[in-house]
Design a protein around this nucleic acid. Structure first.
Lengths: 146, 146
DNA sequence: CCGAATAATGGACTCGTTCCAGATAACTGA
DNA sequence: TCAGTTATCTGGAACGAGTCCATTATTCGG
């Protein structure tokens, strides 16, 4: 889903972020890349679009966008950070144990499952993160073939 | 809760693992250290007990023990891997956003909440991992004071 | 259009973890 | 009990992800 530069610009402004070429490119990259891209692929795409961009520009952009809530960062065990533009609805993820691919999963049990642990041990809890682990269709096919 | 060497030895044998000093020390370290220790503290304790032990011995031990299911590895976003001896009951964790401390949380909703996502997107799911995020009592106190 | 403040560059660096080849120790069967 | 086989441990080098730094370039308010 390609986003217009103006649209992204507006979103940045709404969050009091300076509008820079790299930020626009970073946001668009995350929005347009399928799945939940990692920094690598995001940087690659940003460079395709801008010609060049330092690694830091990408990291900084991702951090800034994540901080204001325009992006969400997920970090499944054993794989580098991944980013997505779907924010604010507390959906969950399935992660492939073999290739690391991540996909969205809508919350099964309703609004906020498991969000009310019986004993929080004194912690002030503000979020419940659910990660499903399994094997994606592709890897299942390959495994069956092997 | 100190464990006798014999007890640990037996557990290793049950899982067809060779019984070595480092493995025993690694398992005991995880069992005896409070919370969910990371490799650092585990290695430190192992060295206290054995005199010396290479980093790899610790990593290898942890991996071997985790593979057979004697240990469980948790990897909260933004913090190094942590290990625990409580296995096989699919409990969950709260992680402090500030200091990274992790504590157990018994499953709130019963046996296996959220384990039946409406749409798995073709993934063969085998585990649902729940992580609660919040602030631990210690850090809350410090923050209040600051 | 200028100037203060924020972002980007690029290069060095940290941290957690893994890889490697050689030395060592644990189990097997006689 | 001992030798052989095989897994494990050592020490050191290496790797990937991510951060830090000083300098240069941009953005945006006035």
């Amino acid at each position: 889903m390609p986003l217009s530069v103006d649209e992204v610009t507006e979103r940045l402004r709404e969050h009091d972020l300076r509008v820079t070429a790299s930020r626009i490119a970073v946001y668009s990259a995350v929005a347009e890349l399928p799945g939940h891209p990692e920094v690598d692929s995001i940087a690659e795409r940003v460079r395709d679009q801008l010609g060049t961009a330092s690694t830091q520009a990408v990291y900084d952009g991702l951090r800034a966008l994540t901080e204001v809530g325009l992006l969400r960062r997920i970090e499944p065990a054993g794989s580098p950070a991944r980013y997505e533009t779907r924010v604010g609805d507390n959906h969950h993820h399935v992660v492939c144990r073999i290739c690391g691919a991540a996909h969205d999963i809508d919350c099964a049990v309703g609004a906020a499952p498991c969000l009310d642990p019986s004993d929080a041990g004194g912690f002030a809890i503000d979020e419940a993160e659910v990660t499903f682990w399994g094997v994606c269709p592709d890897c299942r096919a390959k495994k069956g073939a092997a």
